[in-house]
Each structure stands twice: as structure tokens, then as C-alpha cells.
Design a protein around this nucleic acid. Structure first.
Length: 259
DNA sequence: ATGGTGGCTGTGCCA
């Protein structure tokens, strides 16, 4: 079973690109972030024609997450507990039944948090705490679980072409990196980093020729519960997609699990 | 060189 995460930066602007990629990569489950669409405007039929069930948690203009799944997504959970006044659509979770049991997946869009001297950074950290709480609950289930998404966290210096330019950025603050380490301390495995020590970027800014210079960062992550990590067979970053016409600034990251 | 690019029920904000 192939499970992917992809920040598509606008589902309507990216529809042709997304359909092309789905046709080539043929993932079973896709966690999308930054759909930038309300649920009613999400182009679900186009994905259903490719055989996907579509579950969305949208928002007008910004944010928004979705999960495409060849098998139905059961028991969808929209949003994280702990902040009833938070209207930002950044979390969608559900369960998919396989021939070999179940796999639980979450599509996560962590707040960017910049600039760090504004209220945006404490919002990021508070949101991260709520995700930690949910990750603890899910770990106790002892199921194969994949926490996939745009974490807006650069875990280590190796995860940036120029780490020195990120030292004052929310993505590389000690608090952001500590949050990411705490998830791993709970038992979640960073799929990409568990299979390679090489720099492996997932995002290249639209500006200043970042793609052409390979000036990238690794911020899109798949964190695997121990029961999922035991089944990990392959990890792929589809970096070529960044060079397509009308690309997102992020590329898909895919894990293959023996499920 | 204090810039640059892209998406959105926008006309500034977010990344």
C-alpha cells in the first residue's frame, strides 16, 4: 500500500498537475494540504473518476486538508481537540481497512509560524502541542498509523541547503525542532530519515531560482507508528514533480507499507 | 540588489 503526502498549494490551480501525478504514481492514499478550497468547491469528481474516495476539511482562501483513498476513509476526524475557537482547517484523520487489518492516516498542515515575534509563532507551538496530545492517544491504540503532512519544521541542519539562512525562521527554531523530536520520542519514525542520511528536500521556494539552485528544505514528513514502521518497504520523494509546469512549491513524498 | 513568486469568492494576506 502506497501512502503519500503532498502540499499542493491550491487544489483548483493544481488540478491538472495532481491528476497527472496520480496517474503516474498510483498511490492508494494521498494526504493533501493547502487545498485552499471550501468543501463545496473541491473538485472531487475529477479524483473520483480515478477511483478515489474524497474526504475534505476545507476553509475559504487558506489552509484546508483532504484525504484521497481508493478504499473508503472511515470515521473521519476533522480538527484537533483543545481549541474550540480555532477555525483553521489543518487536520483530517481517518481509518482505512485493508486485507491485512487497518491503517490510520492523518493529513497534517502545521502552522508556518512566521514571523516569530508575532502571535503566529505561539499559535504554531500551541497547535503542535495539540498534535502531540493526539499522537499520544493514537500511539496507545498500537495500530499502523501514518501522521503525514507539511509540518513546517526543518528537523536538522542537513534538511536545508543553507541552514544558516533559517536560524531566525519559525521552521528551524529550537522549539519547532524539539516538537518534532518529541513526536519521535513517542515512537513515531521519520520515514525518510530512517532510510537515508542524504539531504532530501521536499520544498523549493518559487522565488530566486530556488529549484534551479536546489536551494530546498525538508519539511514534508511521514511519521510512522511502530506498527507502521515495521511494515515499511520503500520511501520515495517525487522531486521531479517540482520541475513540471505549474508546480506546487512542495513535492509528493510516498511510503510503501506491506499492508 | 532589502528584491523575488504564486494562490486566492483576494484588491492585501499568506506562504
Amino acid at each position: 500500500m502506497k501512502i503519500a503526502t503532498w502540499n499542493i498549494n491550491g487544489v483548483k490551480a493544481r488540478l491538472d498537475t495532481a491528476l497527472k501525478w496520480l496517474g503516474e504514481a498510483d498511490p492508494d492514499i494521498v494526504c493533501l494540504q493547502e487545498i485552499k478550497s471550501v468543501d463545496e468547491a473541491f473538485p472531487g469528481e475529477a479524483f473520483e473518476r480515478l477511483g478515489y474516495n474524497v474526504t475534505t476539511h476545507g476553509q475559504k482562501g487558506f489552509n484546508g486538508v483532504a484525504i484521497l483513498s481508493k478504499r473508503p476513509l472511515e470515521d473521519p476526524v476533522r480538527g484537533l481537540d483543545g481549541a474550540p475557537d480555532d477555525v483553521q482547517a489543518r487536520y483530517l484523520e481517518g481509518v482505512v481497512s485493508t486485507d491485512d487489518g487497518v491503517v490510520r492516516v492523518a493529513s497534517i498542515y502545521l502552522p508556518n509560524g512566521n514571523p516569530i515575534e508575532t502571535e503566529k509563532f505561539p499559535y504554531k507551538l500551541a497547535w503542535a502541542e495539540r498534535l502531540i496530545a493526539r499522537a499520544e492517544e493514537l500511539r496507545a491504540l498500537e495500530e499502523p498509523t501514518v501522521l503525514a503532512g507539511d509540518y513546517n519544521v526543518i528537523p536538522d541542519a542537513i534538511d536545508a541547503k543553507k541552514p544558516e539562512v533559517w536560524v531566525n525562521d519559525a521552521l528551524f527554531q529550537p522549539e519547532s525542532r524539539d516538537f518534532y523530536r518529541r513526536l519521535q520520542a513517542l515512537g513515531y519514525v521519520d520515514a525518510v530519515r530512517s532510510t537515508t542520511d542524504e539531504p532530501s528536500y521536499t520544498f523549493w521556494d518559487y522565488q530566486a531560482g530556488a529549484w534551479q539552485r536546489n536551494n530546498g528544505i525538508r519539511i514534508d514528513h511521514l511519521l510512522l507508528s511502530p506498527q507502521a514502521a515495521d511494515r515499511l518497504e520503500d520511501v520515495t520523494i517525487d522531486r521531479d514533480v517540482r520541475g513540471w509546469e505549474k508546480p506546487s512549491d512542495h513535492v509528493p513524498v510516498i511510503v510503501t507499507l506491506g499492508l
